[in-house]
């Protein structure tokens, strides 16, 4: 009897699983039955988005802004998104599975260049492909929307050099090695620093774009007692980590150094700038809304004329922090 009960529990679990899925479909179909909608969602064209991951703060804000833009077009198309946990192989699988559903527009935020062949397959099947953020080699895509990390690095370098009046030592905390964003942000800044003979740069460790490694590195660095006037981190998370180490350190420079990061996608960072803990960040623009806008245009028959759309950065300082928060309600926490 005990065996029977256990087995029934197992069967019940399967049935429950079935019900779970039923509930979901019930929601969808009641949506399609709604009188307010002119067309049922199923008959709308599909816009599919293969996201690299949905976990880090920048991607969270990216997703939130994308969904907000999608909300303006609910009567024009259906939207589906799948993340790939930063696994290129997984993303290839997602793209190829999307192709089975024949989307009218495909958006891809590539994990690495490895997804090139999958993107080209879609493009060859006459599906317009919009690349968001990172690009791929070749020209088999419709349009690439993203920020310009070299230019952001250049502006950050310029900002720091000006704040130091052209004279001082900058500690640079590096992003993950081998990643374009880290190389570009370093090279851009170095271009600007080279114009100021009084600026010296100390190359810090690779802190993988993460807060904790940057904090550990900074704690160790401060032990050395080597003087510096500014910290330039390749992203905000590392700038925060570096600041926290500085804040808690027993031995530190007499004058508070300047802390500058990049990304500007978290409320926490903007708050720290308002509080005078960090000095500035440069927004790494999120390509989601622009990508959705272009997708909507394509569905109306308006193909984009440019192959590359570069989104501008925004400098956030104590003076502009409040306005920035108002302009960007979807920042990650």
């Amino acid at each position: 009897m005990k065996l029977g009960l256990l087995a029934m529990a197992a069967v019940a679990a399967v049935v429950l699983a079935g019900c779970g899925s039923d509930d979901k479909s019930a929601v969808t179909s009641s949506g399609s039955g709604g009188a307010t909608e002119a067309k049922s969602p199923d008959s709308l064209p599909l816009v599919a988005f293969a996201q690299a991951n949905s976990a880090d703060p920048w991607r969270q804000q990216f997703d939130a802004e994308t969904k907000e833009e999608v909300g303006k077009h609910t009567s024009e198309f259906r939207f589906e998104e799948q993340p790939a946990e930063d696994d290129a192989s997984k993303q290839i699988g997602v793209i190829e599975t999307f192709l089975v559903k024949s989307p009218k527009v495909l958006l891809v935020s590539p994990v690495t260049v490895a997804v090139q062949s999958a993107v080209e397959k879609a493009y060859d099947a006459k599906i317009p492909v919009i690349l968001l953020d990172r690009g791929i080699p070749g020209d088999k895509y419709t349009v690439h929307v993203g920020g310009d990390n070299v230019d952001i690095g250049r502006q950050a370098g310029e900002y720091i050099a000006k704040r130091l009046n052209g004279k001082g030592t900058v500690l640079m905390i590096q992003g993950l090695g081998g990643v374009d964003a880290a190389d570009d942000r370093r090279n851009g800044a170095m271009e600007s620093f080279k114009k100021y003979p009084g600026i010296k740069v100390i190359m810090g460790d690779d802190c993988k774009f993460q807060r904790l490694p940057a904090q550990n590195f900074m704690e160790t660095f401060l032990q050395k007692g080597q003087p510096f006037d500014a910290v330039y981190a390749h992203n905000d998370e590392m700038a925060i980590g570096a600041y926290q180490a500085y804040d808690h350190a027993a031995t530190k420079p007499k004058v508070k150094p300047i802390f500058v990061g990049i990304d500007g996608c978290q409320k926490e960072v903007v708050q720290m700038i308002k509080d005078g803990k960090l000095d500035a960040t440069f927004r790494y623009p999120d390509p989601g809304p622009k990508g959705i806008e272009i997708a909507a245009d394509i569905l109306k028959g308006k193909m984009p004329t440019d192959k590359k759309v570069v989104l501008p950065t925004v400098l956030v300082t104590k003076e502009t922090a409040d306005q920035y928060l108002k302009d960007n309600p979807n920042l990650a926490k």
């Binding site: 197992a10 679990a13 399967v14 699983a17 779970g20 899925s21 979901k24 949905s54 589906e80 799948q82 993340p83 699988g93 997602v94 599975t97 999307f98 089975v100 559903k101």
Partner: peptide, 29 residues
């Protein structure tokens, strides 16, 4: 299952949850 979840537009994280249930069920059986 992965392909089905994408085709059926199930959220990735909801799908992950179901996968755990299925593993448990398999071992239990």
């Amino acid at each position: 299952l992965n392909v089905f979840l994408i085709l059926d537009s199930v959220s990735y994280y909801v799908g992950q949850g179901w996968k755990g249930v299925i593993i448990l069920l398999a071992v239990y059986l």
